Amino acid sequence: MTAKRIVVVSAGLSTPSSTRQLADRLAADAVDILRERGVEVEVQTFELRDLAHDITNHLLMGFAPPKLEEALDAVSTADGLIAVTPIFTTSYAGLFKSFIDVIDPQALTDLPVLIGATGGTPRHSLAIDYAIRPLFTYLHAIPVTTGVFAATGDWGGAGDGVRSLPDRVFRGAREFADLVERTDRADRVNDPFALDRPLGHLIGGLAGE
Rank of each mutant, 00 (worst) to 15 (best):
M1R: 10
M1Y: 08
T2I: 09
V7C: 06
V7K: 05
V8G: 01
A11W: 02
G12I: 06
G12A: 08
P16A: 11
Q21Y: 05
L22N: 02
A23P: 11
R25V: 00
R25E: 14
L26K: 00
A27P: 02
V31M: 01
I33D: 08
I33H: 09
L34G: 11
R35L: 04
R37A: 15
V39R: 03
V39I: 15
V41M: 09
E42S: 08
T45A: 14
E47C: 07
L48A: 07
R49A: 09
D50C: 04
D50W: 03
A52M: 09
D54P: 05
N57Y: 12
M61H: 07
P65M: 10
L68C: 09
L68D: 00
L68E: 07
E70F: 01
A71G: 11
L72R: 05
L72E: 13
L72Q: 15
L72M: 15
L81G: 02
V84H: 07
F88P: 00
T89A: 10
S91I: 03
Y92E: 11
A93D: 11
G94L: 06
F96S: 01
S98Y: 00
I100Y: 03
D101F: 07
I103P: 01
A107I: 08
D110I: 01
P112E: 07
I115Q: 08
I115V: 12
G116Y: 01
T121M: 06
T121I: 07
T121D: 14
H124A: 04
A127Y: 02
I128S: 09
D129T: 07
D129A: 06
D129E: 15
Y130D: 11
A131T: 04
A131Y: 01
A131H: 12
I142L: 13
T146D: 04
G147Y: 01
F149K: 00
A151L: 09
G153L: 13
G157W: 12
A158S: 13
D160K: 01
V162Y: 08
R163Q: 15
R163D: 12
S164L: 08
S164E: 07
D167R: 12
D167S: 12
R171T: 13
G172P: 00
G172I: 07
A173H: 02
F176R: 01
A177E: 03
T183W: 06
D184W: 05
R185Y: 10
A186H: 04
V189R: 15
N190F: 11
N190R: 13
D196M: 10
D196R: 13
R197C: 00
G200I: 06
H201D: 13
L202S: 05
L206Y: 13
L206K: 15
A207Y: 00
